[in-house]
Design a protein around this nucleic acid. Structure first.
Length: 207
DNA sequence: CTTCAGATGCTCT
DNA sequence: GAGCATCTGAAGA
């Protein structure tokens, strides 16, 4: 129980991606703890995956962090406007990561809403409430993550994953107590990846 | 509900 | 210079 340790990430990327579903992502910010339940992930394995930035061990300034030890954040900038959060997996030298594609707000929802929309949760429209962090770019906005956080050690205190809300002093969430099933499917937004388009490497919560 | 154009700038060749 | 692990609002069904 408690915060996930480095050995959790030092494993097969598909297993890590699947097991992250339902766990809690915590970011310690200046204004307080930003928390969400992880609801959607995708696996990327550089060794043989054409969708990975590190395909065939392609090592550049951007992919460098994936070649290091597991349990670190890989955050990159896309489409001129957004950021995507990943967790580095597998032993050092095997460039692999899990993309955090979506979350559900937990804890103080005002903090998340202020980061994402600049207004407290109570002033959100229904549409805003339902799409607060249901995509990788939106999730980074709500959690206040950008390249400044690239490389953060997930075994530290500023960005980490834990098993239970009680691990960060929050009461349990009714919704999360229900038995959860994990769905799988093709990854999103990788039309360039040829045969890798078909890999069922996306994982998500199904009610 | 779905589709689609446009925004916008870093990253790699 | 081309492309991108995205998002939004508008318009149509």
């Amino acid at each position: 129980m408690g915060k996930l340790e480095r050995e959790f990430y030092n494993r097969d990327t598909l297993l890590v991606a699947r097991e992250l579903i339902g766990k809690y992502l915590v970011r310690r910010a200046e204004e307080g703890l930003l928390v969400c339940r992880i609801t959607e992930t995708e696996a990327y394995i550089g060794r043989m995956d054409k969708a990975s930035h590190a395909y065939q061990y392609r090592r550049t300034g951007r992919t460098e962090i994936m070649f290091g030890p597991p349990g670190h954040a890989y955050i990159y900038f896309v489409h001129g406007m957004y950021h995507c959060l990943n967790f580095v997996t597998e032993p050092e030298g095997e460039p692999s990561a899990v993309l955090i594609r979506g979350g559900a707000p937990r804890g103080d929802e005002d903090l998340l809403s202020l980061r994402r929309y600049g207004i407290p949760a109570g002033r959100q429209t229904k549409r805003q409430r339902e799409h607060l962090m249901d995509g990788p770019g939106k999730l980074c906005l709500a959690l206040g993550l950008s390249r400044a956080e690239n490389g953060l050690d997930l075994t530290g205190d500023t960005l980490f994953v834990c098993e239970s809300l009680s691990d960060v002093g929050l009461p349990p969430c009714r919704e999360d107590e229900k038995t959860m099933r994990v769905g799988t499917g093709k990854r999103i937004g990788i039309d360039y990846a040829e045969e890798a388009i078909e890999f069922p490497w996306r994982f998500f919560v199904v009610k």
